[in-house]
Amino acid sequence: MISALNSALNDIFGAMKLRRVWIALAHEDIGDQHRRTTLGPLWLLVNYLAFVGTFVFVFQPAGKDAAGYSAYVAIGLMVWFYLMEIISLSVPLFRRERSFIEGTTLPLFVYVMRLTMQSAIRAGYAVAGCIVILLLSGSDMTPAWLWSGAGLLLILLATPGIVTVFAFAGAFFPDSEFIIGNMMRVGMFFTPVFWVYSGQGGIQKYAHHWNPFSYFLDIARVPILTGEFPAHAFTVTSTVSICMWAMALLLLGRYRRQIVFMI
């Protein structure tokens, strides 16, 4: 166990020393995806605003405060899209990086950080769009926003652990790419991203209480919408994040030298 932990930490520290590699590659990835387009990466912002606008237009509950619902959906979609992206893209990560893994001695965690960096850059455009929507919808910028910032930071810190776990899952179980992809698409409807939980029973109650994604959304959303600190949501999210990191360290330590034979 100790040697596995040491092996994992060596890999992680090695990747951190090579941060210029994954930062450069992530920027190239984003640039390549939007090369020769007129708006370039601003398409990420446009896509996000289009989604928020559509959801608000279609799902805004009758008689409810339009501005409040816009803010609710804007934050919900921002966090959900980020989580959906990191999980869906992490499952085939090691297969996607196969030529690098088979041709270089870069630490495995470099690829984890490359994806984390890519997703963080994309999310940056959504955060900018979200702030604009919040300000336009009349949300006052209060000190409570700092709790939302802390929530986003916690999600960001959890990301490498989550990516590592799902990347190993994809290497061990190739079908998981499609299973998890479908689950994430369906999961949007089982998570209070655009529907509001207000104490009702039935499936929505279970989807809110037993779905860990609900708490990831709440730590970013509740402080801005209500001004309160969501202690329970922070506790659940922190616990999930620590568990993911623990699994990530175990997998990285135990299997990092085996991945080259598995992809």
């Binding site: 090579l18 590699v21 450069a24 390549d32 090369r35 030529s99 690098f100 041709g103 270089t104 870069l106």
Partner: peptide, 19 residues
């Protein structure tokens, strides 16, 4: 390996050097 199709040769030298 490590060469980006869309990047220039000069940029690819930088990327390969970093790798």
């Amino acid at each position: 390996l490590g060469f980006r199709a869309e990047a220039t040769g000069r940029r690819n030298i930088v990327l390969r050097g970093l790798i």
